[in-house]
Nucleic acid binder design. Structure first.
Lengths: 217, 217
DNA sequence: CGCGCCGCTGAGCAAGCGCTTAGGGTCCGG
DNA sequence: CCGGACCCTAAGCGCTTGCTCAGCGGCGCG
């Protein structure tokens, strides 16, 4: 399966793993609503309404409104972790892996900016034990990226005096895409990914000639 | 007045311009609460309680809870704009101005991370006309930074193929400091500012030798 | 001392919240 | 034809929310 087909499949139904159908419609509706107004400003009546059901129907599939957020956060962060893992586990130099990591990670945050906004900015609304569980996924993502940067620093490809600080900055940069990105903006998710990969490679002082050609059309 | 004295004065009373005393205590309490739990999850009873008053006292000084957020946003974004303006208006090369801009802007977002979190991440809770007014301040800040980067690109100091995109990334990086920074973390606001200035200068391909010496103490 | 004013409180209202419960369709195996 | 499993809805419960209002205490002024 080619990269394009793979991406199309991922995109087609982001919540394909959620069954039955009504439960899936509810997650979709909740993501939309949470991203637009925030978790606390969203009512269960609003979510149910968007999914085309009565308010009570929500509670057949989810115990509480918080559980909905928890499911969304879990699925989303697992996806983010898999994206980072694919880039980190690939073969190639630290430069190549970092470029791929930033490009795909930033692109995902743009493409799925509603989901990403929810899972990155509404975390504090989770209950304590759900929060720590999700925070664990985040830490694993963080460690994967840090390892790439550490590898590049060790091999001399990168000039990174402060590896944890640089990791933090790169992650912060990618995650924040979810905050400002809109589908009607001037940039496509692909362009954001490419731009960010270029910027980050320069940020870590990677050798320059490998830069891609930028926006192409 | 030296830089240290100036910073100490700014810090001493962030809301010094707000009178009378009770109104100032309310803004302080509101910023604290909004930053911790978010605007919608914060109750007027909580704000009043933190300020040591009854819930009704809030409405003597502010018409609505939203007006409190509006005042906070206004003061905060004006401060952010002044910081960026000071760096942009200073004399020196684009490199020097960009370093100064990123250093002070990121440092402010770390030092006043509670305020910054509120003004940067709770904007959507503002009413429509208050929102557009605050968005205007943000656009002015954005333009100041873009001009610095444009100057550097024009003079050949920077290699920035995509000036608006680079501006967006730099701003995003600095703003997002407010999300992850905590006072008990491993980095001081000063260190964050210095680190970020170094990272950004490399990101725009500025000549390297000007890098500062990093953490100093 | 007396009076008005300003800042504040105690009590509470209407509305909206998350969530529950009793019951009604619709389908399938027998 | 029946009976129950499965989804769903209408109605509404208890509670909290943003906000209001009548009234009170202490201060400055005459």
């Amino acid at each position: 399966m080619g990269a394009a087909a793979e991406r199309a499949e991922e995109e087609h139904e982001e919540w394909a793993g959620v069954t039955p159908d009504a439960a899936r419609r509810l997650v979709g509706a909740a993501v939309e609503a949470f991203a637009e107004r925030g978790y606390h400003a969203t009512t269960t009546r609003d979510i149910a309404g968007r999914a085309g059901m009565s308010p009570a129907a929500l509670y057949i599939h989810y115990k509480t409104k918080e559980e909905l957020l928890y499911r969304i956060s879990g699925i989303g962060h697992e996806k983010a972790l898999r994206i980072m893992g694919a880039a980190a586990g690939a073969e190639g130099s630290a430069t190549e892996r970092l470029r791929d990591a930033v490009r795909t990670f930033a692109r995902w945050h743009a493409e799925h900016h509603t989901t990403a906004r929810v899972i990155q900015y509404e975390l504090q609304a989770l209950g304590p034990e759900h929060y720590t569980e999700i925070a664990g996924l985040r830490r694993r993502t963080d460690r994967l990226l840090r390892q790439i940067i550490q590898d590049g620093a060790d091999s001399g490809e990168f000039r990174a005096d402060d590896v944890p600080g640089t990791t933090l900055a790169v992650l912060s940069l990618c995650v924040d895409v979810a905050r400002w990105f809109t589908a009607d903006g001037p940039r496509t998710p692909d362009e954001v990914g490419t731009l960010y990969a270029d910027l980050v490679l320069r940020m870590v002082g990677a050798p320059d000639p490998g830069r891609s050609t930028g926006a192409s059309h």
